[in-house]
């Protein structure tokens, strides 16, 4: 482990830069990982269960078994990410030792700490964290996250909160850019974020790390929507390999969905291509409407 905040952080952000304009797909075995790679995914997230399954089955959701992750790392040549529980730095240490390329300190798993996130500066491996608003994004960046993704509402196939969180972050950034120097102190206090980072964002008009979208993206049109709103890449969780909350889609269907979402992400501004790929794609996962959910069922409220 290294404490390097200079060049170390540049390398961590550097890998996130390489993933821009691409799709990162949740996979649960070597076969799905291979389908994802063949369809043009830029990375895969190695999981024991995808979020829709975690939601349906309940119980404590933990880091995937190293054996499972290793199987997926051996199957593909693209970067492999894995999730650790919020605050569970020991799971993160195990994942770093295993050699995963990115760790997602994720609200999709059951949190291990009700007050603290992992000190991500203490690791050589880069971290991505979820956020619903600018304050949350900047707190995670202060802790060392090298990539931010919107939380959305994972495992639902409902894009509404991915949109809400992306709009929230982008509009809060826009607000910062027109504030006076003296107003930034109070805004930092309101955002519950370090002043130095708030000032940096106010000057640059963007986060100091790449800003990706996740949580409910299920169709090529969803991918285009979040990209047009300002996402720099897209995470697709349950939307590719699940038919509904409990059963997997036919592999041929999953592959067609994966290809369509990849093309839609590259050509997100081109309605002609979007029409073409949307016409080709098998029906999306059944999904759960977030509007009909209780807050207690939501994963996005995890994280502090």
């Amino acid at each position: 482990m290294s404490q390097d905040k200079g060049n170390g952080l540049r390398l961590k952000i550097g890998l996130a830069e390489m993933l821009k304009g691409g799709v990162i797909m949740d996979v649960t075995n070597a076969e799905q990982a291979t389908i994802a790679e063949q369809a043009g995914a830029v990375a895969v997230m190695a999981l024991e269960r995808v979020p829709a399954q975690i939601r349906a089955e309940g119980g404590v959701a933990r880091m995937a078994s190293p054996k499972k992750i290793r199987e997926i790392m051996d199957a593909v040549s693209i970067p492999v990410m894995a999730k650790c529980r919020i605050g569970h730095f020991a799971e993160a240490q195990i994942l770093e030792e295993l050699g995963v390329d990115y760790i997602d300190e994720s609200e999709v798993l059951t949190p291990a700490d009700e007050a603290h996130h992992v000190d991500k500066h203490a690791f050589t491996v880069p971290f991505v964290c979820g956020a619903r608003n600018l304050g949350e994004a900047l707190r995670r960046i202060a802790e060392g996250a090298a990539m931010i993704r919107t939380k959305g509402e994972a495992g639902t196939g409902d894009v509404v909160h991915a949109v809400k969180h992306m709009r929230q972050i982008i509009s809060q950034i826009r607000e910062l850019t027109v504030l006076g120097e003296e107003e930034l102190y109070a805004r930092a206090k309101n955002l519950q974020a370090p002043y130095e980072l708030v000032r940096l964002v106010a000057k640059a008009g963007k986060l100091p790390v790449p800003n990706f979208s996740a949580g409910g993206i299920a169709t090529p049109a969803d991918a285009s929507l979040v990209m047009q709103l300002g996402a720099e890449s897209v995470f697709v969780g349950s939307g590719i390999f699940m038919k509904d909350s409990t059963s997997f889609a036919d592999p041929a269907d999953a592959e067609r969905r994966a290809r369509a979402i990849v093309r839609a992400t590259t050509h997100y501004q081109d309605p002609k291509v979007l029409l073409e790929v949307s016409s080709d794609v098998p029906s999306a996962m059944k999904g759960l409407a977030v509007g009909a959910m209780d807050e207690a069922q939501m994963l996005q409220t995890r994280g502090w």
């Binding site: 830069e17 043009g40 995914a41 830029v42 693209i78 970067p79 990849v262 590259t266």
Partner: peptide, 11 residues
């Protein structure tokens, strides 16, 4: 640019 060469080819 940099990125994933296999993904770029496939896209």
């Amino acid at each position: 640019p940099g990125g994933e060469s296999g993904a770029i080819l496939r896209i």
